[in-house]
Structure formats: structure tokens, C-alpha cells
Amino acid sequence: MRLRRSDPPRLDSLRVSYRAYGRRLTREALRAGMQAPALLTYNPLHAAFGDHGGFRSVTYVGRDDWSAHHGHSAFAEVYQAAYDSISDRGLRVAAVSQQIIDRISPRGPSRVVPNGVDPQVWGGPPPAQDPLEAFLRPIGVYTGTVDERLSATALANAAPHFGSILLVGPEGDDTGRRLATTLSNVHMLPSMDQTRLAATVMAADVCLVPHVVSALTEAMSPLKVYEYLAAGRPVVATDLPPIRHIHPSIVLSSVEQFGQNSAHALARGPLDEDERQRFIDENSWAQRCDALLDLALSHD
């Protein structure tokens, strides 16, 4: 179930819909022979308003702060009401950042479970053939949705330090096109499958997180950062709380100093192979799933 962006729904209608959805899930769990199952849901509306009588525990998994998401701004009050209900009901909360947990203020158990990486995708060696040979080096790479979370100031300051800057991913708005028009060495590349993405990131000289500072970005656990480090690349990132303690090699920056700090990251160079493999092992999705299940199945 999902919200229709064209018409903000009424809370009373949502409560009715999700109570019915919760009862349906309970029936399906019973039909499957589950006994006292635990429920994990990524949908804050389902967590907040669903009828969870058939489950021994309910864990909401927050991967973004939807109340601060610019793509969902029409529903900010709805999401805030959902957060209040999650707290009032004492549900368990796992979130990718402490900032999301703080905004929900859960009364039940909570845990930060950030994003992770797939060792099968990211653990191998760099590709034998350079997939970026058509671009002038040094190359800076950004991966992910290209939209207003990107700071034009940061990229403009970084551009003189690179032969090419590649923005790899889906276009959420016209931000990427405007940057590519304004900055001659900025290039847009489409979304890639995981194998090709890993090869592209491994071929970068520096990986970039040139985010603006906003309520949304302050609550993000950027998947791209974990993938950049799993590829062993030097990273320069806007100084945001969830990024600060991921790895000491990350060069943190203001948007104004992003160019100077891109040069620092270039000079720092890649992680050595032992450190890269250790990072992958410590930040695998298997580790993250274990943490989620530990929270969901605990007897707190």
C-alpha cells in the first residue's frame, strides 16, 4: 500500500485501511502456520496504524525520515502523526541513523542499523579493463539519485580539481542536467546494475557525497558511502552526522571547502586491500540482518 502523491489522504481513512491490512497479514501468517510471529515493516503508516494483534512484536525499520523527504512534503503531517503513533504504541524501532530514532522518540526498544554492502558484489578485485577510459582523469564519481539533495556549490568548488565528475543514477529532477550544462566536466550516466556499478566505483579516483545540509540529509545513512569504502576508494563528503563515524578515512567537508577537501582525498589515495576487506566484513548485509533480527526477536 502506498500514498497517492496527488491527493494527501485523511488520517481517519488511513487508519481504517491499515487496520484492515494488519488483520489480513495476521490471517496470512496463521494460514502459513506461523506461531507468534514477529513483524518487521519499512512502512511507517503500516507500523503506526495497522492492527498487529496477531504478532508478538512489531518493529518499524526506518530507512529515511519520510517527514523530511522533499518528494513527500505534502504528507509531512501524516508521517509525523505516524511517528507519534509508533512512539505511543511502544513499537520497536530500527533506523539507519540516530537522527531518525530521535525524531520518532520511541518508547519501545530501538537500535541504529545503518546500511551495508553485499560482499559478493563488492569484495572482488577491480575490473581488468577500465570502464571509465573514455573520461579525463582524475575522475570523481557520485552514485545515487540525482536531485536537489546535491549541492551545486560543492560540485562547482570540486570541479576544477577533476578532469571529470560523473553523476551516476536516476534523475529525480533537473538538478543533474543543470549542473552538466553549467560545469563542462560534469557528466550524467544512467542507473546501472550492481556489477557494473561496482566496476565503475572501483575505477573512480575519488568518490563524492556533495550533499546539501538539510533535515533529510542529516538523517540519511547514505548507502553510497558504504559502497565507496567497500570499493576501497577515497571519499570526500559533506559533514553530516550519520557519516562522521563510518570510517576515519572519509574526508569531511563543508560545501564551501569541498574543492580543497577533494584535493585532500585525491592525495590520500585508496584503502589498502586488508582494510578494504575488513570494512566489507564488518559492514555486510548479513551483519545488518542479524542486528535487525536481534532487536525484533528480543524479549525486551
Rank of each mutant, 00 (worst) to 15 (best):
R2Y: 06
R5A: 14
S6L: 12
R10I: 03
L14A: 06
S17Y: 04
R19Y: 03
R19G: 15
A20M: 10
A20K: 13
A29Y: 06
L30W: 13
L30V: 14
L30M: 13
Q35P: 07
Q35T: 15
A36T: 14
L39A: 02
L40F: 10
L40P: 05
N43P: 07
G50H: 05
H52F: 08
F55Y: 11
F55M: 08
R56S: 13
S57M: 04
Y60I: 04
V61G: 09
G62Y: 03
D64R: 08
W66Q: 12
S67C: 09
A68M: 06
G71S: 13
H72W: 15
A74S: 13
V78R: 04
Y79M: 11
A82F: 07
A82E: 01
Y83F: 15
S85L: 10
R89N: 13
L91C: 03
R92C: 03
S97D: 07
Q98M: 07
I101Q: 09
P106E: 11
R107N: 15
P109F: 12
S110E: 07
R111D: 06
V112I: 08
G116E: 03
P119C: 08
V121G: 05
V121M: 08
V121D: 06
W122V: 07
W122Q: 08
P126E: 07
P127G: 10
A128P: 10
A128W: 08
Q129L: 12
I139L: 02
G140Y: 00
G140H: 01
V141M: 05
Y142D: 04
T143I: 12
G144I: 02
A152C: 00
P160V: 00
H161S: 12
F162E: 00
F162S: 00
F162K: 01
G163Y: 00
G163L: 02
S164D: 01
G172K: 01
G172F: 08
D173M: 05
D173E: 09
R178L: 15
T182F: 00
S184P: 15
S184Y: 08
S191D: 12
M192F: 06
D193K: 09
Q194T: 14
Q194W: 08
Q194D: 15
L197I: 06
L197T: 06
V201I: 14
D205A: 11
V206G: 05
C207K: 03
C207D: 06
L208C: 07
V209P: 02
V209I: 13
H211D: 13
A215P: 10
L216S: 11
L216T: 02
L216G: 03
M220V: 12
M220H: 05
S221H: 02
L223G: 14
K224H: 07
V225T: 15
R233C: 12
V235Q: 05
T238Y: 00
T238D: 01
P242V: 11
S253N: 07
S253I: 01
S254R: 03
N261Q: 11
A267D: 10
D272E: 09
R276I: 10
R278V: 05
F279D: 03
E282N: 14
N283K: 05
W285C: 03
A286Y: 10
A286V: 14
A286I: 13
Q287R: 14
D290H: 13
L292H: 12
D294A: 12
A296Q: 02
D300Q: 13
